[in-house]
Write a protein that binds this DNA or RNA. Structure first.
Lengths: 220, 220
DNA sequence: GAGGCACGTCAACACCATGTCGAGTTCCGT
DNA sequence: ACGGAACTCGACATGGTGTTGACGTGCCTC
């Protein structure tokens, strides 16, 4: 068996330690090292040894804090998701005020949050293929966002601002998928991509067209 | 240095051997084994040894045929892309005949091709994060498709069927990105996804809305 | 028909990253 | 000052990758 494992005061519960003490800063140091290294190279090219050295500990000690390299990324992803949720706020509830402006605000906030943590986002997208935990966490988060958008689209249809068409859920999935992939390409910078400063406007226009069949739908 | 390396009569040039002979069937056997194994588990969980055994050769011998596991996937991807290009044909040139039907035809053909080789497509998406060659090949192919769509959108705008809006290239990128991600989710089956039989219709409607701001644009 | 050469094959090896074990050390509360 | 939890790491086991070098084996040539 491995040492300690209670994970009590731990905000995310992804690491394996209890609250207070020396190790807290070590755990943070590992996280910080990971985010720094990710800005330089791909996740797969970072070894556990580097993460450990960067945090001033030996490789075996790394395992005291995290069960694997992937767990570190998962913790980083948790934070970004939390930040994105906070940034999105209740914009969707105020859609009818001014649909064009509100949708842009929503998309723009995600764009900013992901852009600020592009290294983490990119790494997760890359690892998603091989790591089931990242895949499931991302799937769960996406499901939440899809449902929120689905509900918003239905509300807009109900008030007569948006025409009927394909099921709101399918539309929500397609649009969220588009954003994800477009951001990935934009932030990764390889392959055809929309310029970073145009991305939000392009995305918004496709969303408006798809939902309202109009790029400037009427407010309530 | 490694043995043989001319790669002459080799259709794709991804392997390392010259034309004819015993080895030809071995190379094909490796490819077939890979595609079969890919239907059962993720690319990362397949070892070179399994590929070799499956083709009736030893692991070192595998290296006689392919420089790495990734090269096998690359060859498989080449084939799928070729098939997709063939399936797409000249549909885009006949858009004005009946835009709604033609766009559906185009999207539907890609859907069928990718669906028929989902194991390869999924594996490539997963490996793209870690393998630069797959990433570049995919980027190049996408660029071609994006350009074709961009040209088509511009033609539709010129003939007055589609309204002006965001740059045609950006629109083409966004729509192609959407398709890619939606298909990935649909074929992978984890996370929110559009049902396989609805995917083409949903995608088509978003394309039509985004390009024409109308789900049934007029023919020439 | 013998010699040469390109094709094809593999045992054995070197390497490197991951993960584990067990024996420490340090720190804190009592 | 002591007992246990937090923390640390040297040394090892494992498993996959890629390389080396020597060995068949068929076929083309002269």
């Amino acid at each position: 068996m491995t040492p300690a494992r209670t994970a009590t005061g731990n905000a995310t519960g992804r690491g394996r330690r209890a609250a207070r003490s020396v190790g807290d800063e070590r755990e943070l140091a590992i996280l910080a090292t990971a985010e720094r290294l990710l800005r330089q190279r791909a996740f797969a090219d970072i070894s556990i040894d580097e993460l450990a050295r960067g945090a001033g500990i030996s490789r075996p000690t790394f395992y005291f804090y995290f069960p694997s390299k992937d767990a570190v990324l998962l913790t980083l992803l948790d934070r970004v998701i939390e930040e994105a949720d906070a940034a999105a706020g209740d914009v969707l509830d105020r859609l009818a005020e001014d649909p064009r402006a509100r949708w842009r605000e929503l998309i723009g906030r995600f764009h900013e949050t992901f852009g600020a943590h592009r290294a983490v986002v990119l790494a997760c997208a890359q690892v998603r293929g091989t790591n089931a935990e990242v895949r499931h966490l991302w799937a769960a988060v996406l499901e939440r966002w899809v449902q929120a958008v689905e509900t918003a689209i239905e509300a807009e249809r109900r008030r007569g601002a948006a025409p009927d068409g394909v099921p709101a859920r399918d539309l929500a999935i397609a649009l969220n998928s588009m954003n994800e992939r477009v951001w990935y390409a934009t932030f990764a910078g390889d392959g055809p991509a929309v310029a970073e400063r145009d991305a939000v406007d392009v995305l918004r226009d496709v969303w408006l067209s798809a939902i309202y069949r109009d790029t400037d739908p009427p407010p309530a």
